[in-house]
């Protein structure tokens, strides 16, 4: 219930209606949305029980390594009601044709694969918020100093997931495991996204806000 209450309000992409649709416009819209999502994710992390007690350095290392996983898990969850469409925001839904035009076939394909897994599992919101918090604490950053504290946080969230599943889905004894086994695909997809947007940064054609740039560089 704590995690449910910590769920942030949804953001809107608000693509500029005065600019004609183009590859550049799509990327600009996505990068602007990602920058605002980052602010929200950082604020959300502070509400994860135990996270603010970590050292500031460890909080930074963790967020620098998992922010895209958290962001993409959110996109996959939003996309659940829309078959084969990626809901970056309620006002920015990409179908396969749009993905092709935006050069996002591979990335959106991966997000779609993830969303399909969650759709098949009929992932509920409680599971989504717990999985997102677990993804946060499951950072394998080599820069974490107090590994024990992070492990404790992960254990507490893992326990919460197991407890939830044993009461809400007692007919599916392997459900928690199935949910956790989606995390490798989430990390793989986040890495794919990172490469895509890092290459965009290197090309230098798409305007990017400072926080987004900083996190891409990290």
């Amino acid at each position: 219930s704590h995690l449910m209450a910590a769920e942030p309000e949804k953001l809107f992409a608000m693509p500029d209606p005065l600019v004609q649709d183009s590859y550049l416009k799509t990327m600009t819209t996505l990068c602007d949305l990602a920058d605002r999502e980052l602010v929200v994710i950082i604020g959300w992390a502070k509400h994860i029980p135990g996270f603010p007690s970590l050292s500031l350095a460890d909080q930074m290392s963790i967020l620098q390594s998992v922010w895209l996983e958290v962001l993409i898990l959110g996109v996959a969850f939003r996309s659940l009601p829309y078959e084969d469409e990626i809901v970056f925001a309620e006002d920015y839904i990409m179908d396969e044709d749009m993905s092709t035009m935006a050069g996002l076939t591979e990335l959106n394909g991966a997000i779609n694969q993830l969303a399909r897994k969650y759709r098949n599992l009929q992932l509920d919101k409680e599971e989504f918020v717990m999985l997102k918090a677990i993804a946060l604490t499951n950072s394998d950053s080599v820069h974490i100093e107090d590994l024990e504290a992070v492990q404790h946080l992960k254990d507490v969230l893992h326990e919460a997931l197991l407890e939830y599943e044993s009461t809400k889905h007692s007919d599916e004894p392997r459900r928690a495991g199935k949910l956790l086994m989606t995390l490798p695909l989430l990390r793989q997809t986040a890495n794919r996204a990172l490469h895509h947007f890092y290459n965009l940064k290197v090309e230098g054609k798409v305007p990017m806000h400072k926080l987004f740039l900083e996190m891409l560089e990290a």
Partner: peptide, 15 residues
């Protein structure tokens, strides 16, 4: 160097 990061500032803010 880390202290100059926006992430650092956002984590330090109380809200």
């Amino acid at each position: 160097k880390e202290k100059h990061k926006i992430l650092h500032r956002l984590l330090q803010n109380s809200s």
